[in-house]
């Protein structure tokens, strides 16, 4: 008999919520601090748009949609995967991974979703508000049914790509014994994903864009859903490679490849798990 993965996940989510509610104040501080970080970000870009009408074809409100997309993806990753990836390193160091390996359930599933950081979902709602505010203010904006379908779908693809990168990084701690720079490294990489890919131009930008699209596909994470919603028809600069239809197709492949690769790394790493002495 197979375990009910949904049932297990819901219990994880429920237990996390019970735990978060035990430490209420901590929970509220977390919500407020992550929200204010994103709102400060928004303020920063408002300042920038005082000096320019658009950045490589991204007007102010189009870019707000881009930021909202970043917030959706990040809040989902931070709520469901970030605390677990960070904890994996700790589980390896203390030998707590032993218990995960004993359970008759997929180990990657178990360590990836043990905790849900509910407070990170605060930003999800901020993003919703921002989206509702920014979309109607985009010039000649029209909403098509396929945008409503494709947008959440590609937000999900983005989350899965980021998850794959994160669990791959976290799995290295099984080999290294300890990998505490995980969060820093993560920040360095994902930093590149937070800007429209059109800005990566010139002799320095092109290789960067290609590397972060085709090698580590983090540029498609935000760009593809953001383009689908904010700029479904115009693809300025970058030619074919910036056309969302091509990118959307590529993203499907990139998501599948990232997931398969991360699973392979994870399994390989588990095979050489040494456990900590008790």
């Amino acid at each position: 008999m197979h375990p009910s993965y949904l049932g297990v996940f819901l219990t994880f989510a429920r237990n996390s919520l019970i735990r978060d509610m035990t430490f209420r104040t901590n929970f509220l501080i977390e919500v407020v601090s992550s929200m204010s970080w994103m709102i400060m970000n928004l303020g920063f870009y408002t300042l920038v748009y005082q000096f320019t009408p658009d950045i490589e074809g991204w007007g102010k409100y189009e870019f707000f949609v881009f930021i909202a997309t970043t917030m959706f993806v990040n809040s989902l990753v931070q709520a469901f995967f970030m605390p677990n990836a960070q904890e994996l390193s700790e589980l390896v160091r203390t030998g707590g991974l032993d218990f995960a390996l004993l359970k008759p359930i997929d180990t990657q599933f178990l360590v990836s979703l043990r905790r849900v950081n509910w407070s990170s979902l605060g930003n999800f709602f901020v993003a919703l508000v921002l989206l509702v505010y920014a979309l109607p203010r985009i010039e000649n904006f029209q909403l098509f049914w396929w945008q409503i379908l494709l947008y959440p779908f590609y937000v999900l693809m983005g989350v899965l790509i980021l998850y794959s990168i994160m669990i791959t990084l976290a799995a290295t701690s099984i080999w290294l014994g300890r990998n505490q720079s995980l969060y820093d490294f993560w920040f360095y990489i994902t930093n590149f994903s937070r800007y429209p890919m059109e800005i990566y131009r010139g002799s320095y930008g092109e290789p960067l864009r290609n590397a972060f699209t085709f090698v580590i596909p983090i540029l498609v994470v935000i760009n593809v859903p953001a383009k689908i919603l904010a700029k479904p028809f115009n693809s300025q600069g970058g030619g074919m490679a910036a056309d969302w239809r091509f990118l959307a197709l590529f993203t499907l492949f990139a998501t599948a490849a990232s997931l398969i690769f991360s699973r392979w790394i994870f399994k390989k790493a588990l095979g050489s798990y040494r456990s900590a002495s008790s």
């Binding site: 375990p3 049932g7 297990v8 219990t11 994880f12 237990n15 359970k103 008759p104 359930i105």
Partner: peptide, 15 residues
């Protein structure tokens, strides 16, 4: 968490 919550988790995992 109280132990009973962990027990419920085991109930789900082992079905």
């Amino acid at each position: 968490l109280p132990a009973q919550e962990s027990f419920k988790l085991h109930q789900q995992i082992y079905r």
